[in-house]
Design a protein around this nucleic acid. Structure first.
Length: 261
DNA sequence: TGCAAAACACCATA
DNA sequence: ATATGGTGTTTTGC
């Protein structure tokens, strides 16, 4: 994940806010340029075609982005997941905020190793067993990153109205040394990081830190390395123009906790 | 082209 | 984890 890094960072055009925006198309072009004539003869076969990674860095933020799947394969994986994945329904699809119950504005599912417990919105649940497609994607991600994962959270955004608010991923039961690997399939969506000290409210230490905006493309992989999750919140905002679904898979390594008797 | 309305985005709040 | 409303910006359509 340290291979040739193309500079695709461009300042946003607006004068009111100059945020960093990475455009998927540029990343895509850079990736394929890189791939064309890069055949080193003396590397081992399985590493003969390393993926070009785009490094994304800011104060306390460290991510790597790449196109992991061709359009053809990403299409195939998307279609298979649309058949295979069983999403939460009923209570598990609801959340209570300020005393009111809401349906979460997306669909969610969790899969992982046998018997793996995880906490979600305060309750402890058992992950479903991996499906063949999920195992395949997990293994491709492992080959690309050298990291192993025992759990995946799936979020499905049926269109641009589905979204997720600003949050950090719960660290308590996550292996802090393992990055979170986020695979995107389907509609391309904006993804926004905001530093915790840049958030408003009663923050005595409020600082002016620019958000980092990415566009997560069909077939892409975003690696969120430590300590990103400690300092930066992230969200997937509403985008009314988006009319087609996106499936996001976040692979994690969960530390198995002792079950109380 | 220029304007006004509609749609969208962002932030604060509950 | 949310939706909602106020405010400011961008897009649309005439």
């Amino acid at each position: 994940m340290n291979g040739g890094v193309a500079t695709c960072v461009e300042e946003n055009q607006t004068e009111t806010e100059d945020l960093v925006m990475l455009h998927a198309k540029q990343i895509c072009e850079a990736a394929f340029e890189q791939d064309d004539d890069d055949d080193d003869d003396d590397v081992e076969e399985e590493f003969a075609h390393p993926i070009p990674w785009q490094k994304i860095e800011a104060e306390g933020l460290d991510c790597d982005y790449s196109l992991l799947f061709s359009k053809q394969e990403a299409d195939r994986l998307f279609n298979q997941l649309e058949v295979e994945v069983e999403y939460f329904t009923g209570d598990e699809a609801q959340v209570q905020v300020y005393g009111k119950l809401y349906n979460v504005p997306r669909q969610q599912a969790t899969y992982g190793d046998e018997g793996l417990m995880y906490s979600f919105s305060g309750v402890h649940l058992l992950a479903r067993l991996w499906t063949p497609t999920l195992e395949y994607i997990r293994d491709v991600v492992t080959n690309a990153t050298g990291q192993t994962f025992n759990f995946v959270l799936i979020n499905r955004y049926k269109d641009g109205n589905d979204h997720i608010g600003e949050h950090r991923d719960d660290e308590r039961e996550l292996d802090p040394t393992c990055p979170i690997a986020s695979v995107s399939l389907g509609a391309s969506r904006d993804f926004i990081f905001r530093h915790k000290d840049a958030r408003s409210g009663s923050n005595p230490n409020k600082r002016q830190i620019k958000p980092v905006k990415l566009e997560l493309a069909h077939g892409s992989l975003l690696l969120m390395n430590a300590p990103t999750n400690r300092h930066w919140y992230h969200s997937l905002p509403v985008r009314k123009k988006v009319k087609t679904p996106r499936i996001n898979l976040t692979f994690r390594r969960i530390i198995k906790t002792r079950v109380k008797k």
